[in-house]
Design a protein around this nucleic acid. Structure first.
Lengths: 231, 231
DNA sequence: AATTTAAATTGATATTTATCACTTGTTTGC
DNA sequence: GCAAACAAGTGATAAATATCAATTTAAATT
């Protein structure tokens, strides 16, 4: 982490969190004065589960996986982080521990902002507090749906969910680079990597997708959505 | 829902949400003036998933199950609600829809309080806003752990988790009435009711618990915790 | 280009878990 | 008290899914 900032200021940053719009000029300046930039190489860990949590994180560029280190060294990937999204686990308001790990999938330029800044702003700015609640609520809602989907769907449905997540939420395109390995796809859809391979092949044979080791192209989104919906 | 209130006021209510302590006298009075009591019989639905959400809920007495209605009419029980706990789904700050259903397990005396009241208090009282964030964060953290546990543990581990949840979080006792049916236990541990029966028998044969249709007694909590921990 | 290393793929097999078809208890309304 | 209705429990079987053991392919390094 170097002391030099590449990003000029939060005010001009195009990747700034949209909820910073609720802040006054001086509040935003307060944020800007208390941020710390860092760059990471692909594979490096930005946040380690269990470690003391004192900072929220934003990506200015690049992508990361947010994952929980579970039982028997098995990881569970919760989501893919991109610029514009607040990365602050529930530990911030519970036990000041990171509840998940974050690792770079690509090279990353990141901003760290102390929890104290957020806590202060929540106390003095009602609109910001409301925005924080909205942000957490959206994430919470997704987690609920995710839990039920994982619990009730069979493998094809779970994998279809993941492929659609990448298309709709990560890349906004039905054709994308598969930045995760088969192993990692399994950690997201909760299945063995071998099962990922087999089900991707099934989808391909059914004409629903094209896939090679590094690319996914959704050919019949309606069918894929049906598979996801039926479970 | 009758117009008469059985509970005198929030100020004197022994089951009031602890975070109301952050409110001023007049703010608490504002809450008190905008609450609506209702009583429900066991089995009745207090909140229906998908319906427009306008009120938060507190139980003054009794217990309820909070559950998501998932795929193929399969329910997924998220938690057991008791007095003192805020029941307000993430929909309150997202789409004004109830994201889960709540059904009475026993007879219930309940208080409904409009979201508007909460939203107003969040905006004007920073300490209250912070308390709301803490409340949501705690729930979120539990949901994360729950999701990983469900995903990574096998049936005995998942059922052990549920039994320990009742002992530690619901009844604060290692001996308790099993208020859920085997079917419902399955909806909580994500397994078929037959599997619940078989695994309870296994636990009993191993001397870990005593159980009959309506009662659970944890005999060897250390062993049960080990089963839960190992998955 | 050859070598090493890691990831993807495949087929066979073992586990885990659900489903089905009943039987046996338990409530609960008449 | 009796019978309908429902929950609990049981055994057999089928389906879903993981694991294991190789192979093949791709990527990175020398």
């Amino acid at each position: 982490m170097s002391g030099t900032n590449l990003i000029e200021s939060c005010e001009t940053c195009t990747k700034a969190w949209k909820n910073f719009r609720t802040l006054t000029k001086s509040e935003l300046q307060y944020v800007n004065e208390n941020r710390y930039e860092a760059i990471f190489k692909s594979g490096e860990i930005l946040i380690k589960q269990g470690s003391p949590a004192s900072n929220a994180l934003f990506l200015a560029s690049g992508m990361a996986k947010i994952y929980i280190e579970g039982i028997n060294r098995k990881n569970f990937i919760m989501s893919i982080a991109r610029p514009g999204r607040l990365i602050m686990g529930p530990g911030a308001y519970v036990n000041s521990r990171h509840t998940y790990s974050v690792a770079a999938i690509t090279d990353i330029q990141a901003c760290f902002i102390s929890f104290e800044v957020f806590r202060h702003l929540v106390r003095v700015n009602g609109a910001f507090a409301e925005a924080m609640l909205e942000d957490i609520s959206v994430k919470s809602l997704r987690t609920h749906m995710r839990m039920v989907n994982l619990a009730q769907k069979k493998m094809p449905g779970r994998l279809a969910d993941v492929l659609l997540y990448f298309a709709n939420d990560v890349f906004s395109s039905d054709e994308y680079e598969m930045i995760l390995s088969r192993q990692e796809l399994g950690e997201m859809a909760n299945m063995a990597k071998e099962s990922v391979v087999r089900i991707l092949k099934e989808f391909e044979e059914a004409g629903v997708i094209y896939s090679d080791a590094s690319k996914i192209k959704i050919l019949a989104k309606d069918k894929l959505m049906l598979i996801a919906a039926k479970g």
